[in-house]
Amino acid sequence: MKKEEYYNLGRKLTKEERKELFKEYKETNDPELRDILIEEHLYIAEILSKKYSGRGIDYDDIYQVASIGLIYAIDRYDLSKGYEFSSFATPTIIGEIKKYFRDKGWTIRVPRRIQELSKKINDAKVHLSQEYQRTPTINDIAEYLDSTPEEILESIEASKVYSPQSLDVVYDSNNDDKEINLSDLIGEDERYFDKIEMKDFFEKLMEDLNDVEKTILLDRYFNKKTQVSIAKKLNISQMTVSRIEKKVLDKMKKEIDKTTKV
């Protein structure tokens, strides 16, 4: 299919058509093909941008950064690796969004010493709260950091211009007495996208497994069956099930190692 035909389809491309387009773009570096690929996959940037909106930076800015990440992913994607583009693009786009949050968090430039002191204050709050079993006072923090109350107050006030909130800000946990940092929460919504990536990974892996290997993998790790029950089902020994399971896991490990090097 020629690129002119893509413009006249009036619909989204099929999975096979997108693969064909990626292959053609890899060979020609045609900027028009690149534009088509960007348009076809902007939905990924939109989904990820929504996941990170409402955290102190305008959605439009996040979407713009996500779109740039999408372009990077399109330029770097290698169809021959065998993985779906969404699996490759998602971590690339998320990385660009997180980098933007780090770089643009301080909406007003404050002195480096204030930024560094702000982090120390947050760390001190965690330590002193655990030690005193109460919220530490300004004087407590100042004494702990060998600083003055005025400097502590200055840093706290300056940190209010940080948007989104500092990744070191501390929250009380609803489930127990522990405190958690905002950094522990950022990206938690990414679990959905991890599932997308793992789904593509397992689909590719399954293509290389025979029926017995597929049955053992699915029953062991998705249906939570024992090796003994699987052995009875397949009419083979438990030792054979164990051997095949180990073989499949070794194959998975090699595939994961290759993926992390992409």
Results as ranks from 00 to 15, higher is better:
residue 128 L to A: 00
residue 130 Q to F: 09
residue 2 K to H: 14
residue 84 E to R: 14
residue 246 K to R: 11
residue 172 D to W: 06
residue 144 Y to G: 05
residue 234 L to H: 07
residue 212 V to E: 11
residue 7 Y to F: 15
residue 151 E to R: 11
residue 250 D to M: 10
residue 8 N to L: 12
residue 57 I to P: 10
residue 31 P to A: 03
residue 144 Y to H: 04
residue 148 T to L: 07
residue 68 I to L: 08
residue 176 D to T: 07
residue 53 S to T: 01
residue 27 E to R: 15
residue 240 T to G: 04
residue 135 T to S: 08
residue 85 F to I: 03
residue 139 N to E: 13
residue 189 D to R: 11
residue 127 H to P: 00
residue 136 P to R: 01
residue 51 K to E: 15
residue 45 A to L: 12
residue 81 K to M: 12
residue 203 E to Q: 11
residue 225 K to L: 05
residue 186 I to R: 10
residue 175 N to L: 13
residue 47 I to Y: 10
residue 3 K to Y: 12
residue 96 E to R: 07
residue 17 E to N: 07
residue 242 S to G: 13
residue 71 I to W: 00
residue 79 L to R: 02
residue 232 K to N: 09
residue 201 F to D: 09
residue 212 V to G: 03
residue 143 E to W: 09
residue 146 D to Y: 13
residue 192 Y to D: 12
residue 103 D to K: 15
residue 150 E to V: 06
residue 51 K to V: 10
residue 246 K to L: 09
residue 187 G to V: 07
residue 195 K to A: 09
residue 74 I to Q: 04
residue 43 Y to L: 06
residue 258 K to D: 09
residue 12 K to P: 10
residue 113 R to C: 13
residue 30 D to N: 12
residue 223 N to C: 00
residue 124 A to W: 08
residue 13 L to Y: 05
residue 247 K to N: 10
residue 29 N to A: 10
residue 162 Y to K: 09
residue 236 I to C: 13
residue 121 I to Y: 11
residue 53 S to N: 00
